[in-house]
Structure formats: structure tokens, C-alpha cells
């Protein structure tokens, strides 16, 4: 047949196409991870922006809770200063803890709890906290998808050839917190 000579030509072409497909899917997943991280970043920044307002609102009512307020301010500054996924996660955990403490203490101040501004900030901070949690969930899913792609055959070949590196998970609990015996449900 006249077209049989095409076969030896077609095989390398198909191989290259297949290769390109794998490479592109890896790149797509990597971009997904980067986007997911950007989303976490946006929400973290939003939380940093909300905290000064919160402190301002709360200060008048909670004059005796100086340490609680200072802890939040300090934790916020620390979280802004660090970089890197693991350090960021740890700093955010500390900030979350400090905020929780603040809201817990706020329960003792009925006047504060009736303050419209405070309630609004509480809703926004709660939601931002949720957004961070969900963004982290989405990020971890994306990382898992990407890292799996790096490890399974045959995309692992392409990955190692082009130097794709695995991405770290954003862990909520840090090692230090896990060490302390705590009741989990």
C-alpha cells in the first residue's frame, strides 16, 4: 500500500505528542498549586488587615486584657514577617490561637458583644478563618494531585527530565502542637 511508509514516521510523532501532553498536564497542575497558594495568601493578608480594626474596637472594652491583645498583635506581626510554607503555617497557627483566645475572653464582656462593629468584625474574621481553611484544603488537594503526578509512571519520567519539584503541604498542626497530648475527636 502506498501509505505504509508513513508508519515509521508516525510513531515518533505520536510519541512526541504524548510526551507534550504529559508535560502540559504537569505544568497545568503546577500552576493550579501556585494559584491555590495565591488564594491562601490573599486571605492571610485580609486577616492581617482586619486585626488592627478589631484591636481598635476591643481596646476600650478590654482594658484589663492587655496580654491577650498584645499576643494577637505580636502573632500578627510574626505571621507577616515569616516566609516559606512551613513557617507560614506555624505562624498562622499561633495567630489563630491568639485570636481564639481573644474571642473567648470577649465572651466575658456583654457590652462588647452587643457592639455592632465588633459583631461585624467577628463575622468577617470567622469567615476569613474559614476561607483560609478552605483555601488550605484546596491547596493541599492541588499539591496532592501534582505530587502524585510526579511520582506515578510514566509522568514521573517527564517530571524528572524537566526538574519538576514536589510541593509541600500546608499543615494546620505543627509538630510542636502534636507533641502536647491533647484530646482529639
Amino acid at each position: 500500500m502506498p501509505w505504509t511508509w508513513l508508519i515509521p514516521l508516525a510513531i515518533p510523532v505520536l510519541l512526541v505528542l504524548w510526551f507534550v501532553g504529559i508535560y502540559n498536564s504537569l505544568v497545568r497542575r503546577r500552576v493550579q498549586v501556585q494559584n491555590a497558594w495565591a488564594q491562601i495568601d490573599v486571605q492571610l493578608k485580609r486577616r492581617y488587615d482586619l486585626i488592627p480594626n478589631l484591636i481598635e474596637t476591643v481596646k476600650g472594652y478590654m482594658a484589663h486584657e492587655r496580654t491577650v491583645l498584645e499576643n494577637v498583635t505580636k502573632a500578627r506581626q510574626q505571621a507577616i514577617d515569616v516566609s516559606g510554607v512551613a513557617d507560614q503555617a506555624q505562624a498562622e497557627n499561633i495567630l489563630t490561637g491568639a485570636l481564639r483566645q481573644l474571642f473567648a475572653v470577649a465572651e466575658n464582656y456583654p457590652d462588647l458583644k452587643a457592639n455592632q462593629n465588633f459583631l461585624q468584625l467577628q463575622e468577617e474574621l470567622t469567615s476569613t478563618e474559614n476561607k483560609i481553611a478552605f483555601a488550605r484544603q484546596f491547596y493541599n488537594d492541588a499539591v496532592q494531585d501534582y505530587n502524585t503526578g510526579l511520582q506515578v509512571f510514566p509522568s514521573s519520567l517527564v517530571a524528572s527530565m524537566f526538574g519538576f519539584r514536589s510541593k509541600p503541604f500546608f499543615e494546620l498542626e505543627d509538630a510542636a502542637q502534636r507533641e502536647a497530648p491533647q484530646v482529639r475527636f
Binding site: 493550579q32 469567615s127 476561607k131 484544603q137 484546596f138
Partner: peptide
Amino acid sequence: NPRLDNVVEEMAIAAG
């Protein structure tokens, strides 16, 4: 309704 608007945004983030 900040709660609804926030919940929608939270879920949009979770769903990507």
C-alpha cells in the same frame, strides 16, 4: 447579608 456573601465566597474558594 454578610454571612451569605461570606459563605458563598468560602465555598467558591473551597471549590476552586
